[in-house]
Simulated assay, not measured.
Amino acid sequence: MSALTSVLVVRLSSLGDVLFAVPAVQHLQRSGRAGHVAWLVEDRAAGLLRELVPLDELLVFPRGRRSAWPAHIAALRRRRDDVVLDLQCNLKSRLQRIFLRAPRKLGYARPIAREGGERGLTESFSPSPHCRHRVDCHLAALSMLGVEPPSEAPRPELKIPRETRARARTLLARAPGSGPVVVLHPGTSAFGQLKRWDPARFAALGSALASSHEARLIVTGGPGEQALVAGVLASLGRRALAVPPEGLTMLAALLAESDLLVASDSLPLHLANALGTPVVGLYGPKDPAITGPRFDRSEVLTAGVACSPCTLRRCSDRLCMRRLEVDDVGAACARLLAEPRA
Rank of each mutant, 00 (worst) to 15 (best):
A141D: 05
A141S: 15
L142D: 04
L142Q: 06
S143K: 14
S143V: 05
M144S: 10
M144Y: 01
L145I: 07
G146A: 09
G146K: 11
G146Q: 07
G146C: 06
G146E: 06
V147F: 06
E148G: 00
P149T: 09
P149A: 12
P150I: 05
P150F: 10
E152L: 11
E152T: 13
E152Q: 14
E152K: 10
E152I: 01
A153G: 09
A153P: 09
A153E: 04
A153H: 10
A153N: 08
P154I: 04
P154Q: 08
R155H: 08
P156D: 07
P156V: 05
E157Q: 14
E157W: 06
E157F: 04
L158A: 05
L158M: 07
K159V: 13
K159Y: 01
I160R: 02
P161Q: 11
P161C: 11
R162E: 15
R162T: 11
R162L: 13
R162W: 01
E163S: 15
E163Q: 14
E163H: 14
T164I: 14
T164K: 06
T164E: 13
R165E: 15
A166S: 14
R167Y: 00
R167S: 14
R167C: 08
R167I: 00
A168R: 07
A168P: 10
R169T: 04
R169G: 06
R169H: 11
L171P: 02
L171F: 15
L172C: 07
A173W: 01
R174D: 00
R174G: 01
R174L: 02
R174W: 00
